[in-house]
Write a protein that binds this DNA or RNA. Structure first.
Lengths: 337, 337
DNA sequence: TGTTCTACGTGTAGCGTTCTACATTTTTGC
DNA sequence: GCAAAAATGTAGAACGCTACACGTAGAACA
């Protein structure tokens, strides 16, 4: 079945570098890892040979003994441009290091995480994981781990980097109140439940209550499926008691909301104000002009990477980094007189 | 500097499985690779032990002798949701295989490709690579290679999967003509030049000529930077000889175009029609209602993966797969009386 | 009955690194 | 000057697998 593969140009190995430079293999390895006990002369010789032969160490072989210098990122989905921001942050943290990031995408992190561990990633960043702490701890026992967007810190044996999603929820409500809206609904996610969503809902609830709008609290939940979201939005907007503002748990949903509202002939923000979350690039377009909560994806990615490398380098106590969100106000929630 | 890492739960190795099952290491390896010469009884025993011990082969170790069962995907950028479609295709092709896809993102594929080869990817899929054929052939000599979105087939020692971008360009123009537009401009990409863009421009040119609109050919080129795109669009739309339609090389640019046009008080499609490329999910939203050329990212990803696995399995002649694009008409280019 | 096949298992030499010991040379301290 | 300490380099055993080369036993054939 499996035919013989065509001949490929073979790789330069550490042995060839050693013999070219006239030193031992161990010496080359030392230079590679810049380990202790290498004279300038030797280093120079070896470097010259490496450059000349265009040598590159093979990660698999390194992995068998030490590190692969590869970090694994696990995204829940690729459609949301917000993740590109996180990725940018990761990359800028990696700039002057010898590490490389490899990404995978999967809703249920589980099997992907195993695959990454099998592939000797030196550490993992899980973005918006839908996993219990028990499960995460189990992973953390096997490889350095940092999560982005996971709010359960109880007994966590891994690092976390989070946007303060509760505050984000509060800010959205506060902003809408300031602009004169009272009947503020929240469009949330039905399943899977995540600590991120929980926090945003909690923030919404608390702030509504504090603003004296406790009786107007109205959370509608929709799954990720576009069709369903539309239905639910339509029902909400055509209902007898239409809200005058919707706080959507992510920009993508907010765009949906704008879309449905527009189709129903409602004008934004006069008839209905909309606020999103993530402040993705699409918010800026004038057909959207979407007010959104910015959670600085780049900072999240950067910090997570920093923490991960620290952990790989031996830190064992957990650290938890929190980014403060802010409102980026645009037309979709402007004050109506 | 580098502290000792905390103790991690050690992995189960093939040796432990062998001893648990009471067979040789070689036997376990045979079962793993389902190689020739294994009785059902032995296979069952080994399987049982593997399940019991929860054994998973280590990719690095396999890689040192054979395959890692890992494919590398190189994306030019993560912001465009179109790439999520390609990825979905890749994943569905991988469903019942033992392969895993790992992604990387980089504008200049170069260094990322090297990193992936270092990490023993069994094969690579390059999406929209900005590389010469010489360079691509050089990569292909070292690892199985498939490109998506690269139209130069001369002497290619790799497989290619492409949308017929030239036809795509033609379809856009044809569609706009049919809906009564004549002064059709094209918004293209300034740099880097890519074979994809070239083909789309060529299609635009050819079709314009065939439609007898040769004198109206007008290609404006903008870099990826949003600010510049806005400037160029503004100049185009405020100029003395405003076009009545713009064909944009990607949906993202089309959304920009809609945005700028809206800001200038132009109505779509009455004053100006817009057509994009990629048919991303955002086209559907009623604030966009963007006509777009669909290039079936999922099919592209699926086919590329199939071809790549064939190549890994030994095929050495090149294959070239082409997907036919189609127009998905929406309001942004509707006929105006 | 011997001889040849075929099917099934095993032993073991690497794959390209890292890293612990250790040997050798140079420097330091007095 | 001389012992002790520090600096520099080397040998070689892993790491966890794969795959080649064999050994053995039963079946098929003459």
């Amino acid at each position: 079945m499996t035919k013989k593969a065509p001949v490929r140009t073979p790789r330069i190995t550490i042995r060839e570098v050693a013999s070219d430079a006239g030193v031992s293999v161990a010496a080359v390895s030392k230079v590679l890892r810049d380990a202790y006990g290498v004279s300038d002369a030797l280093r120079a010789k070896v470097q010259a040979s490496m450059d000349k032969l265009n040598y590159r160490p093979l990660a698999s072989a390194r992995g068998l003994r030490g590190r692969t210098y590869t970090l694994g990122l696990v995204f829940p989905d690729l459609r949301n441009p917000f993740f590109a921001d996180i990725f940018a942050g990761v990359n800028s943290a990696l700039e002057r290091t010898r590490y490389q990031a490899m990404q995978g995408v999967s809703v249920s992190a589980s099997s992907l995480v195993e695959a990454m561990i099998d592939r000797q990633m030196d550490g993992l960043v899980l973005i918006g994981p839908n996993e219990t702490n028990e499960r995460l701890n189990d992973i953390a026992d096997r490889t350095p781990l940092v999560t982005i967007g996971h709010h359960d810190l109880t007994d966590a044996r891994f690092d976390t980097v989070n946007n303060d999603d509760q505050l984000g929820g509060r800010l959205a409500v506060r902003h809408l109140c300031q602009n004169g809206h009272k009947k503020i609904a929240m469009l949330s996610l039905a399943a899977p439940v995540s600590t991120v969503i929980n926090q945003r809902e909690l923030g919404y609830r608390l702030e509504m209550t504090e603003q004296g709008l406790g009786s107007a609290i109205n959370i509608v939940r929709a799954p990720q499926v576009l069709r369903e979201v539309q239905l639910i939005l339509r029902r909400l907007l055509e209902g007898k008691d239409r809200p005058d503002a919707i706080f959507c748990w992510t920009d993508l949903m907010a765009f949906e909301a704008i879309s449905v509202a527009t189709e129903l002939g409602l004008s934004i923000p006069e008839d209905i104000a909309i606020v999103g979350y993530d402040n993705t690039i699409f918010c800026e377009f004038s057909q959207n002009r979407l007010t959104s909560i910015d959670q600085s994806g780049e900072v999240l990615g950067l910090q997570a990477t920093r923490l991960l490398i620290e952990r790989i380098d031996g830190r064992s106590h957990s650290e938890h980094f929190v980014v403060t969100p802010r409102v980026v106000a645009r037309t979709s929630s402007a004050k109506v007189s």
